[in-house]
């Protein structure tokens, strides 16, 4: 009986880890939106683009950090719970 419970918990753990990785898709959407908008802006005004590279990377970093959080949750579920 306890063995079944353990197996059940294990299943929940793996499913949870898989679900947590969905969050990375959001990070992908965010990074893509930022990069795409940067590119369309840069094509309109190429001379201003190099000065905004820092802002581009900061924006990408912020968007990506949230995806990394969900990846971390997945890792925690897989290896630490």
């Amino acid at each position: 009986m306890t063995g079944d419970l353990i197996q059940f918990a294990l299943m929940g753990k793996y499913i949870g880890a898989g679900l947590a990785t969905i969050g990375l898709g959001g990070a992908g959407i965010g990074v893509g939106t930022i990069a795409g908008n940067f590119l369309s802006g840069a094509l309109r005004n190429p001379s201003a683009a190099p000065g905004q590279m820092a802002n581009l990377f900061v924006g990408i970093a912020f968007a990506e950090a949230l995806g990394i959080f969900s990846f971390l949750i997945a890792l925690l579920l897989m290896f630490a719970v």
Partner: peptide, 13 residues
């Protein structure tokens, strides 16, 4: 937190 997890998580991942 985000500052450290971003770097560590990226490299670890």
């Amino acid at each position: 937190l985000s500052h450290s997890i971003r770097l560590g998580g990226n490299i670890m991942a």
